[in-house]
Design a protein around this nucleic acid. Structure first.
Lengths: 231, 231
DNA sequence: GCGATACTTTGAGCAAACGCAAAGTCCGAC
DNA sequence: GTCGGACTTTGCGTTTGCTCAAAGTATCGC
């Protein structure tokens, strides 16, 4: 494998302010891997013997019910650590991490975790903050699920997606990776039928534009209005 | 204030295995407080300048939407640390903590947090584990909210409550503190009307027994069956 | 005991969203 | 280019659970 470039890490919070040599050491412990769309990075219940940094791409963490339904519990945008189950006292991964877009990740064995936190104080802190943010996010999503109607939930999900991974185009903001109706329904706790109907309606009204697995938001303001509505 | 007894802490995970003198020091930094049912222990958005240990009682953490709806994001049974927002990098409490039963808590200023984690390694570990468990719980609740019908959600909530705070009586297992239909609806993301109808039905079938704000589960197996049903 | 307040029950009507079913469309592989 | 599979659309009937409304009941303070 080629030697990894130090500039990969210098601007990311966990490694912010570290010296070149420190970063060199950290990188030398890492393996870089590439995942195709749809590939599993880790699976629910697997021993949490690795942790990761997402350099590029987009990941969703899903849980599967006994009945086989899947729901997305978490989204991870580029630049974040993930798979840090061990850091919060878990032996196994609590969900499955799927590459939503093509992903480049760095991967370390869990053993290095203690090493890093001991030698680089910013690392532990940044991790705590990541967990905190994630807890907050998930609580917000729970609140949405409990109080908002389907329309508002889907609008919220789209807005979140374009903020995190939107790509500006002539027409509007496009979500930067293929996304099926099924994916959206798993994010919002509804069915792919309902999502499809809603997107069709929004398309008729010029709010979004979508063909096959690509979605572009044309009228962000309208979507935000939808996200507010309670009923 | 009377001196606190050391036996309060000796058997709790965060302080497990510490010497008498260590525990003495920890207790001397704490203030003990009592909260009546319904009292706020901390409020959403307040600076997180204290953390707590719940010695006795039961706490629920609620979030309020812009529209004023409340939903319960977390339950804390006796013996757990809570209000540890600072440990996960948050400046303010992300929700409101309400005493669901009469509560006895120990309270420390946040400043002592770093002290404890530095001197007592088990403390930091136990905290990480608490956060991990809590994240897992909240993800499960989200999954329930997304996939289960109201009936199954309410059944699940009741089962959780009797496992955590159930008191065995002649007839069955009683939830050990007053609980309104409204409370249950906030835990399950529904309306108090639906909860009331459902409890009435279950009462007719001899599954639960309830009057005013006390609920007793008579037929746990039936409730578990309800909790399974997807539709 | 009396009244006020908080909590609960129940009914009727209605809308949101689901389930099922079938047809249509796009894409990649060969 | 054509075939197969994955993804999407749409219609229709049904159900769940919400809203609104009103009456009933328990509890607490005085």
């Amino acid at each position: 494998m080629p030697r990894l470039d130090e500039s990969l890490l210098t601007h990311l919070p966990p490694f912010d302010g570290l010296s070149r040599t420190d970063i060199r050491r950290i990188l030398d412990g890492a393996v870089s891997r590439r995942f195709e769309i749809g590939a599993d990075i880790f699976r629910e219940g697997e021993p949490a013997d690795r942790f990761f940094l997402l350099l590029d791409g987009y990941i969703r963490v899903v849980r599967t019910t006994e009945a086989g339904e899947q729901i997305t519990v978490l989204h991870i945008p580029a630049g974040q650590l993930f798979g840090i189950a061990r850091a919060i006292g878990r032996e196994t991964y609590p969900g499955r991490a799927v590459a939503a877009a093509e992903c480049i990740v760095l991967c370390w064995p869990t053993a290095l975790w203690d090493d890093f936190t001991r030698h680089y104080p910013g690392f532990g802190l940044s991790m705590a903050r990541t967990v905190g943010v994630r807890l907050g996010e998930i609580q917000s999503r729970m609140q949405e699920l409990a109080t908002l109607h389907v329309e508002a939930r889907i609008a919220t999900a789209l807005l979140r997606l374009i903020t995190q991974t939107g790509r500006q185009t002539a027409a509007g903001v496009e979500i930067d990776f293929p996304l099926t109706r099924q994916d959206l329904s798993e994010m919002t706790g509804t069915t792919l039928h309902t999502v499809s109907r809603l997107l069709s309606a929004w398309q008729r009204e010029g709010v979004v534009q979508s063909q096959h697995r690509r979605i572009t938001v044309l009228d962000r303001a309208r979507l935000e209005a939808c996200a507010q509505h309670k009923g």
